[in-house]
Amino acid sequence: MSAFSAIGEEAEIDREEFTPGIEPQATWCPGCGDFGVLKALKQAAPEVGLTPDEILLVTGIGCSGKLNSYFDSYGYHSIHGRALPVARASKLANPGLTVLAAGGDGDGYGIGGNHFMHTARENHDMVYIVFNNEIFGLTKGQTSPTSPKGHKSKTQPQGSAKDPVRPLSLGLTSGASYIARTAAVNPRQAGEILAEAIEHDGFAHIDFLTQCPTWNKDAKQYVPYVDVQDSDDYDFDVHDRREAAEMMQETEDVLNEGTVLTGRFYVEEDRPSYQQEKIDQGQMPEEPLAERYFDDDAEWERTADELIARHR
C-alpha cells in the first residue's frame, strides 16, 4: 500500500479547489500576465485529473515565484534560478508526484540557465513554465535576458547592446522533448498546452509570454497573436527537429517586430524520460524511493554485509 494515497487518485474536482484559502487573491499588478498562468494552471490541473496533494509546484524568485502562494498544492518556493534542480530531485525521489516548476525569464534563462540546459538535456518528466515578460519586474524594471536589443532601463540607460536569448531554440538544442510558447492573452490555448505538457512524459518547456504592464509591455502588445498550428501561413512538422528549429528561429526573430507566434513548436514522444532511462539501466529503484522509507517491512542493506569483506 502506498504511503502517498493522494497520488494517482482519480478525482473530478472543481478548479476552485486549487485556490488557497490563505491567499485566495494574488497580489500581482492589475493587468499582469501572471494571472494568465495561474488561470491556465487551474484549468489544466483538474482537466488531467490531478488533486492538490499529488502536485509539487517548485518556483524560483520573482513575481513568478509567488505562483505557489496562489495555487493550492504542495509548494516549494526555492531560490533564484534553482527551481529546476530542486524539482528534478523530488521527481527522482518520488516519480509518482506530478512535478511542476516555474520561474521568470531571468530566473530560467539567466541565473538558472545552466540548470535549464541540463534539466532539458536529461529530459526529466516535469513541466517548466517560464514566465517570459522580457523584463525584471519585482526588482522594478531592469533589462532581462529576453529584453530586446536596444531596450533601455535604469541599468541599461543607453539601451542593451545584447541580442536577447532565444528561449525556444535554447530549449531545443538543450534537449527538451516538448516545447511550446503561449501567452497570457490567450488563456484557452495556454490551458490546453499546460494540460498537454503535464501529460507529456519528459521535459516540457513552456515559454509563457506574460506581459508586465508596469515595467514593459501591456497586454495589447501581445495581440494579435497567431497560433502556428491554426494558421495557414505556417507549415512545419512539430515532430521534426530541423523544421522545428527553423520555425523557432523565425518566431524569435519576429517577436520584437510585433508578430506574436504561439503554439507547439516541438514534440518528441518516443524519447524515454530520464527516470525511465535510469530505471532501465539499473541506476534507480523501480519502486519510488520515498515509499521505501515508509515501508516497515523494507529490508535495508548494510555495509557490514555488502562491502566490508573486501576490506579484510
Binding site: 509539487l56 517548485v58 516549494y76 526555492s78 531560490i79 534553482r82 534542480p85 530542486v86 524539482a87 528534478r88 530531485a89 523530488s90 521527481k91 527522482l92 525521489a93 518520488n94 508526484l97 545552466n114 540548470h115 540546459m117 541540463h118 535510469k278 541506476q283 534507480m284 529503484p285 524511493l289 520515498a290 521505501r292 522509507y293 515508509f294 542493506e301 555488502e306
Partner: peptide
C-alpha cells in the same frame, strides 16, 4: 543499495538536488 546517485552540472545544483530529494522523502 537501491539508491540514486546524480552527477550534476555544478555544486549549486548538487546541494539543491539533495534538498529536493529530502523534501520528497529520501
Amino acid at each position: 543499495f537501491g539508491g540514486i546517485a546524480e552527477q550534476v552540472e555544478d555544486e549549486i545544483a548538487a546541494a539543491s538536488l539533495a534538498i529536493g530529494a529530502s523534501h520528497a522523502g529520501a
